[in-house]
Write a protein that binds this DNA or RNA. Structure first.
Lengths: 155, 155
DNA sequence: CAATAATTGATACTGACTATCGCTAACCTC
DNA sequence: GAGGTTAGCGATAGTCAGTATCAATTATTG
């Protein structure tokens, strides 16, 4: 398993900070009984290296040495364990992104693809109320907000 | 234009009320330059007959005499002209539904698949505000709410 | 170190949808 | 109505994203 690194206080050296993230995720997966494998680490590492929401195919392309199926499996595992969250673009394209954990929504820039987490927006209660009024018991929801980020708004 | 005519193919007697819906939609399409064709009417009629959100494949299955491509094309046209709206289930399955026009959101029952429009819920402003706070200019959003309808909530 | 069970990767497959293209029929003009 | 455009049709082939299969590999455990 590769990574030989002292896991404890890990940043004393210029290890790419993403390495810490990878170790952290691998450790969490390990706690849940998932093995620490080379391909898996490669996938996680590639995920951590992405600057913005990415597609499964992009990930595959960036990992020519890892089988497609393995990339997809790894990605699915990360989503299931809440390490990565799904992002839906306006054209329904599915993308992924390292999760900042916890339930939250995304602001997506239609121009550059950047994403930001929507803070301080508590639609939850509002939706639950409206659902109740319609005779429904709400159990969940899906929300994505589209627009232009600061940089792209100027055009 | 069109269609006050009892087309011979038709069953003039107790015209199902959906027939009025079909005529109406065909008329609107006609206004936009789309032809009034038999297969198109069949598609619209099948759409109008659905009691709840349906998939494209379900529609194909219910129209064995209409080519798949035609069903898909018809459905796409109806979406583009706002006669039909798309509904996204929790598992990302795409369904369709006669549109009640105007921007609105759906409440979807995870058990029986029924849908209701979410009334009196104005998330718009809230989202725009939160987006602005994050330096974004909001241009749109996608929201689906999942739960159980009154009937299914009892279980 | 051997046993065992998870994981991998090559590949075949699936499901949903789109492109192609020769043919048909709706609509417009006269 | 008749005739000419051309939208629309349907059969089918193709595409694309993602999944299933399965023999070989490898992390983990006893």
């Amino acid at each position: 398993m590769v990574t030989t690194t002292p896991r404890h206080t890990g940043h004393e050296h210029p290890r790419p900070r993403s390495a810490a993230v990878v170790d952290d995720i691998v450790a969490q997966l390990s706690d849940q009984g998932y093995r620490d494998t080379e391909p898996r680490r490669l996938v996680i590492s590639a995920v951590a290296a992405q600057g913005r929401p990415f597609t499964a195919e992009e990930l595959c392309a960036s990992l020519p040495c890892v089988g497609r199926a393995t990339v997809y499996r790894g990605l699915r595992l990360l989503v299931e364990t809440d390490q990565v969250c799904r992002v839906l673009l306006e054209d329904r394209e599915l993308r992924y992104q390292l999760s900042h954990q916890g339930h939250h929504h995304h602001l997506l820039c239609a121009v550059c693809g950047a994403s930001a987490d929507l803070e301080g927006c508590d639609v939850e209660d509002m939706l639950r109320e409206a659902a109740t009024a319609a005779g429904f018991r709400m159990s969940g929801h899906w929300l994505e907000v589209y627009g232009r980020c600061g940089e792209c708004a100027e055009d």
